[in-house]
Design a protein around this nucleic acid. Structure first.
Length: 450
DNA sequence: TTAGGGTTAG
C-alpha cells in the first residue's frame, strides 16, 4: 500500500525511499518485494546494498547474501561495518568457516574489529563454524563484554561439547554480579544433557523463578528440555503446562520428551493436540515423531507421518528423517523393506542412514548383512561413532566407553564386574552370543572380535 | 535509510 503510494508520488528513483522500502519489506518477511525494489532502483548506495544483504540473511538466504556481496564489490561499492555484520551472520548460518575468515580479514583491513557488535558477530561465526579456539581468542582479549557477547560464548561452549566450560563461565558471571538476562539463561540451559548434573539445573530453575523469567518462551523451553534430559518427565510436563505462550519449539520439546522416555503413544497424542492448537509442525517435530513410532513399533503410523511431511506440510524430508524410517523398519524386523527404502532414496545415503541399517542388522543377528553394510560404509568414507555410557553419583558424572580403563578406580570397577559375572553364571546365566561383535578381516571374512 | 545473541532431534 505504502509502496503503491510511493510509486504514484513519483519518488521511485529516490535512493532513500528505495532503501526504506527494502528494509520494511525485509522486516515483514516479504523479501520478494524488497528484491523487486532493489532491482528497479536506478541509483544505489552502500545503505541499499547493506539493506538488501541484511534482508536476505534475516530471511535465511545466506548463500544469496554472500553472492550479492561479491556483486557489490564488482560494482566498486565500499562495504562498512554494518555490511560485515550481516555477512558474518550469513557465514554463521552456513557454517562457512573459510568465508568467515575472509570477512574477518576484511574487517581487520577496515579497522572496525574492536567494535563490540563486530566482535560478538565474529565470535558467533567462529563458534557456529566449530572453531571455538578462534572465538575464545576474541572473547579473552576483548576490552569489554556485554550481554550479547556473553550469550554468544555460552552457546558456543554448549554447541561445541564444552559443557563444563560453559557452566564455569556462567557461574563466574553470576558471582561477579553481572545482570543475567533471559538470553543467557536459555543459552546455559542448552548445555544440559544426560551427563549433566540435575542439581545445577535446579539451581538455574531457582534463578529463573527469582528473576521472573518463567514467562519467557525460550527460557521455559530450555527448562523443559533440561528436565526431560537429566531430570524427570513429570517436571518437564509441569513447565510445559504452565507456559503462558507455547511456540512450535515448546511442542517439539514436549513431544521429544515423551518419545525420549519411551511413551510414543503420548507423543503422537501431543502432536495431534499441537495441530488442533493451530501450531504448524516443523522438520524437528517429525524427527521426534518418527523416533517415537520406531520405539513403539508403530510402523504404519510412522510411514504415514513421513509421507505427510511433503504431501500435507510442505516439508522436504532430510537425511535424518530417512534414517529414522530405516531405523523404524529395521526394529520391526522389516529388513528387506528397510533396504528397499535405502535403495530408492533420491540422494546418496549418509552416515546416519547406514548407522540405522547397521543397528537393524545387529538387533536381528544378521551379521552377514551388518558386515556388508560396514563394508559399504567404509567404501563411502564414513566412520562409525563410539558409544558412550555414564552414571551420576553424588553430583559427579562418570562417563565411559567400551574397554575403558581411564577411570581412577578402574581396577576395583572391573573386579566388581568380574564378581558380578561369576555370580550370574552361578545363578544359571547364559550370555547372549548374538551380540558379540564381528569384523571383516583382510579377506573380507567375518571374524569374532577378541 | 543499513547492524551482533537465546530454546527443539540425533
Amino acid at each position: 500500500m505504502v509502496h503503491a503510494l510511493v510509486i504514484l508520488s513519483g519518488y521511485r528513483g529516490e535512493v532513500t525511499v528505495g532503501n526504506a522500502l527494502i528494509t520494511s519489506y525485509s522486516k515483514c518477511g516479504c523479501f520478494g518485494f524488497a528484491k523487486k525494489v532493489f532491482d528497479e532502483m536506478v541509483a544505489r548506495n552502500i545503505v541499499t546494498w547493506t539493506a538488501v544483504i541484511s534482508g536476505l540473511v534475516q530471511n535465511g538466504f545466506y548463500d544469496y547474501g554472500l553472492k550479492l556481496f561479491t556483486k557489490m564489490r564488482d560494482e566498486f561499492v565500499d562495504p562498512n561495518s554494518l555490511t560485515y555484520l550481516s555477512l558474518l551472520s550469513a557465514c554463521s548460518g552456513l557454517q562457512a568457516l573459510r568465508d568467515g575468515k575472509q570477512i574477518h580479514g576484511l574487517v581487520l583491513k577496515l579497522g572496525c574489529h574492536s567494535d563490540m557488535c563486530i566482535e560478538s558477530a565474529l565470535m558467533d561465526m567462529y563458534s557456529k563454524c566449530g572453531s571455538m579456539e578462534d572465538a575464545l581468542q576474541i572473547f579473552y582479549s576483548a576490552d569489554k563484554l556485554d550481554d550479547v557477547s556473553m550469550t554468544v560464548i555460552l552457546v558456543g561452549f554448549a554447541q561445541n561439547g564444552l559443557e563444563e566450560e560453559a557452566i564455569q563461565v556462567f557461574v563466574k558471571m553470576v558471582k561477579s554480579g553481572i545482570d543475567i538476562d533471559p538470553n543467557m539463561v536459555s543459552a546455559i540451559l542448552g548445555v544440559f544433557g544426560a551427563d549433566t548434573s540435575m542439581a545445577f539445573g535446579q539451581q538455574i530453575h531457582s534463578l529463573v523463578i527469582k528473576k521472573r523469567f518463567g514467562a519467557n518462551t525460550y527460557v521455559s523451553n530450555g527448562l523443559m528440555n533440561m528436565y526431560s534430559k537429566c531430570g524427570t518427565l513429570e517436571d518437564s510436563t509441569k513447565v510445559f503446562q504452565r507456559m503462558p505462550q507455547k511456540n512450535s519449539v515448546s511442542w517439539n520439546s514436549i513431544i521429544a520428551a515423551f518419545a525420549r522416555h519411551g511413551d510414543g503413544l503420548k507423543a503422537i497424542e501431543l502432536y495431534e493436540e499441537m495441530l488442533s492448537d493451530g501450531i504448524e509442525p516443523t522438520d524437528v517435530t517429525f524427527l521426534s515423531l518418527l523416533h517415537a513410532c520406531s520405539h513403539v513399533g508403530l510402523v504404519d503410523k510412522g510411514v504415514e507421518f513421513f509421507e505427510s511431511m511433503s504431501k500435507v506440510h510442505q516439508i522436504n524430508p532430510r537425511m535424518e528423517h530417512c534414517a529414522c524410517v530405516v531405523d523404524m523398519l529395521g526394529r520391526a524386523r522389516l529388513l528387506s523393506e528397510a533396504k528397499d527404502f535405502v535403495d530408492k532414496l533420491p540422494v546418496k545415503p549418509g552416515i546416519l542412514v547406514w548407522q540405522a541399517l547397521l543397528g537393524a542388522c545387529a538387533i536381528h543377528g544378521k551379521w552377514r548383512d551388518r558386515a556388508m553394510a560396514i563394508k559399504r560404509m567404509k567404501e563411502a568414507g564414513l566412520a562409525k561413532e563410539t558409544g558412550i555410557s555414564w552414571i551420576e553419583i553424588e553430583k559427579n558424572v562418570h562417563s565411559f566407553v567400551v574397554c575403558d580403563r581411564m577411570h581412577p578406580q578402574a581396577d576395583s570397577i572391573y573386579s566388581v564386574l568380574a564378581q558380578m559375572f561369576l555370580q550370574l553364571v552361578d545363578e544359571g546365566y547364559q550370555p547372549d552370543k548374538r551380540f558379540i561383535l564381528y569384523y571383516l578381516d583382510q579377506d573380507e571374512e567375518m571374524v569374532a572380535s577378541p
